[in-house]
Design a protein around this nucleic acid. Structure first.
Lengths: 212, 212
DNA sequence: TGACAATGTCACTTGTCGGTGACTATCAAG
DNA sequence: CTTGATAGTCACCGACAAGTGACATTGTCA
């Protein structure tokens, strides 16, 4: 199903697929360079070097294009990244250590993905159709890691969901904030040393709450 | 300096001050009702029932108006609110208890101020001149409470700034998120019970890290 | 009274946004 | 070559944004 297209009228191959790809990639570039505020029909089309009408034709509008972009994936860390590569070794660790590691890796994952931070901020501020498209993948990624970290663990003495929510909220906030406002409560978020201190404190919190 | 204006040409009192106040209050209403996205020259002027050109004349543009609005204050909790009303009693508490109380009160303060949450979110999305005006007051409020909570305390074993940053980040994130997305990591942010759990976990974290 | 300055109104320009209708160019099938 | 479908271009629309210049209105002072 490649070389000379057969049948009815398969892909006149003036390169529709390539154009779609160019549009999807343009979304990523605009998002990374100018932020989500700039993600509009006109800007994205200009960035892709394509007429904006194609966004409507191929994706049924901007929300559709953003949804396609979201489906490309890669924004959210996968399980292997969060548990440090070796899932078996991860599961062999005691619970507190497991949580601590997952939290640290989540922080690093978000910090290393500018696009992810942008999406995080975006989803935060607008409840529109564009952002809905980006939600599903994130929710799934979050649920998966929590399930893995808590696998086979029974700790009725700790409100784990509440702990997760607080740790996740803190990390999300700091990561997003790093891009906008470099100083928070006297700490320089653009200084690597600050992030080491943050990691250390996260570790300490997790261990302290879970009882080492 | 009130009744019949003397001197040069003091305030022709077709009510410039009243108009300025109407504009400032209009910013608050628009912000509360429609969110910061809607805060524009046209909307605010319409809300105030005044011509938008006066925004330029009296405030030198929207940033100036927003700055005046920010100066009105009331968005950020003051020290008394954060330490529970009685500053003496607060200082008499052990450090861990003090921190725990301040954190809880900060959470409640933010949760009870829709306008504050809106400003918090706003600051996030735009690094423009409008939001700069809102920043100073917030930074000062934050520094003050941390100073009070840590007064006379010497805990070289704990990285207090890192702890503050993480707790503040978590609270800010959750509070803002509550308005946009009611579910976070499986917890319903619009359920009072959830917030009780969050408060309990914050308390537990603080005590665990500070060693009860 | 008349002059002047300040308050407030109105209409307008300019630019950008999302969105659409009509056009051309290309390719495959008959 | 003709037909017909699809890929892509272009010009335009209406809505709304920020900002401005000219005008009307009002109060104060000389």
């Amino acid at each position: 199903m490649n070389a000379p297209a057969r049948k009815t009228s398969a892909a006149t191959a003036k390169d529709r697929e390539a154009t779609k790809r160019r549009l999807i990639e343009a979304v990523g570039r605009v998002l990374a360079r100018q932020g989500f505020q700039a993600v509009g029909v006109n800007t994205v089309a200009r960035e892709a070097g394509v007429d904006k009408v194609l966004i409507y034709r191929y994706f049924d509008g901007l929300p559709g294009l953003v949804a396609a972009f979201a489906r490309e994936g890669g924004f959210w860390p996968d399980l292997d990244e969060l548990c440090g590569g070796d899932r078996q070794a991860f599961l062999a660790l005691p619970f507190a250590k497991r949580m601590s590691l997952a939290v640290r890796n989540y922080l690093r994952a978000v910090r290393s993905r500018p696009l992810t931070r942008e999406i995080l901020a975006w989803r935060f501020l607008e409840r529109n159709e564009l952002t809905d498209a980006l939600d599903t993948a994130r929710a799934e990624a979050g649920a998966a890691i929590l399930a893995l970290a808590g696998e086979g663990v029974d700790r009725p003495d700790v409100d784990l969901p509440a702990l997760h929510v607080l740790l996740g909220a803190a990390i999300n906030h700091l990561a997003v904030r790093q891009d906008r406002e470099p100083i928070f409560a006297g700490l320089a978020l653009d200084d690597p040393a600050t992030w080491e201190r943050v990691e250390a404190m996260l570790d300490r919190m997790v261990r302290a709450v879970l009882g080492e």
